[in-house]
């Protein structure tokens, strides 16, 4: 009996240590980046242009590029993703076509980002150059759309599933059409969950680098239109760290990125809690 107990104590102590280790790793990474980078953050760093290929000066163009890219990607991806979820959840029952769509969505989620980059490069940058302007925010956004689609579809579907059927029946029994019911009742009810998915996707776009390395170009100028090349904060971090060798700028940029991701995670969990509250 005591041996059994001792084994259990050893095992549980080991697992507890792993749990604590996980949190420690996270804290270590954040602390390490912040210690070296957070003092770099200033008004000047955020809002002035870089000098000497990013070795000095600020990161303003990368901030503008990130905002541009996130907005364009989401404006395209959100309606498509939510529309797909509505179609899967409200308009069809399980069948061969929905199986195919679901399989494709799963497959998209599993494709490495560099492969998205290859595809975006061959299709949007090279083949559709007359439309997208080659390496550009548009090319990168369209590539980004294919990457974030699975997240948006999945979270939107979950949110729609959480809306009880009694609401659908209640609305249809009032003589409303299916689309009226979805637009006027089901979508608003599912909105916090849908927004959670969109926020998570924004995080993905901000954090993504490999695919944009091949599609966004990497220009250090402030983009004037969707057809200009640009760079995001992540891409900027990579380039100054690996090519310019300006580590203080790299750590400063990394600190900005971590702050952004923290904000995004808080926002996402806030909306998620609202969704849960609405139906309990």
């Amino acid at each position: 009996m005591s041996k059994v107990n001792r084994n259990q104590n050893i095992a549980f102590a080991f697992f507890s240590a792993l749990g604590i280790l996980t949190v420690c790793i996270l804290l270590l990474i954040i602390a390490y980046i912040f210690v070296q980078g957070i003092t770099k953050i200033s008004f000047d760093f955020l809002f002035s242009n870089p000098r000497k290929m990013g070795a000095e000066g600020g990161i303003f163009p990368a901030i503008v590029g990130t905002i541009y890219l996130v907005l364009t990607t989401m404006i395209i991806a959100a309606p498509i993703g939510v529309g797909a979820a509505i179609y899967l959840n409200e308009y069809t029952s399980r069948g061969r076509i929905t199986d195919m769509i679901r399989f494709a969505t799963e497959a998209l989620a599993g494709i490495p980002s560099i492969v998205f980059g290859l595809f975006g490069f061959a299709f949007f940058v090279i083949l559709l150059k007359p439309i997208t302007g080659g390496w550009s925010i548009l090319s990168a956004s369209l590539t980004g759309v294919t990457m974030v689609l699975p997240t948006i579809v999945r979270t939107a579907e979950e949110a729609l599933k959480a809306v009880p059927d009694s609401l659908r029946e209640g609305s249809l029994a009032l003589g409303t059409t299916k689309w009226q019911t979805i637009k006027g009742l089901i979508l608003p009810a599912a909105m916090p969950g849908i927004i959670t998915g969109i926020i998570l996707s924004i995080g993905r776009v901000i954090g993504e680098t490999a695919a944009f390395l091949l599609t966004l170009g990497g220009s250090l100028l402030i983009p004037q239109s969707l057809f200009d090349g640009s760079r995001t904060l992540s891409l900027h971090l990579y380039m100054v760290a690996m090519e310019t060798g300006a580590m203080d700028v790299a750590f400063g940029t990394a600190s900005v990125l971590i702050i952004l991701i923290l904000l995004i995670n808080f926002a996402a969990s806030w909306f998620f809690r609202r969704l849960i509250k609405r139906f309990s």
């Binding site: 990474i29 390490y32 980046i33 995080g203 901000i206 954090g207 993504e208 680098t209 490999a210 992540s234 891409l235 971090l237 990579y238 760290a241 790299a250 750590f251 990394a254 990125l257 971590i258 991701i261 995004i264 995670n265």
Partner: peptide, 10 residues
């Protein structure tokens, strides 16, 4: 959620 370039830098 941490971007891979941040992991890379670390």
């Amino acid at each position: 959620g941490i971007p891979s370039v941040v992991y890379g830098l670390f």
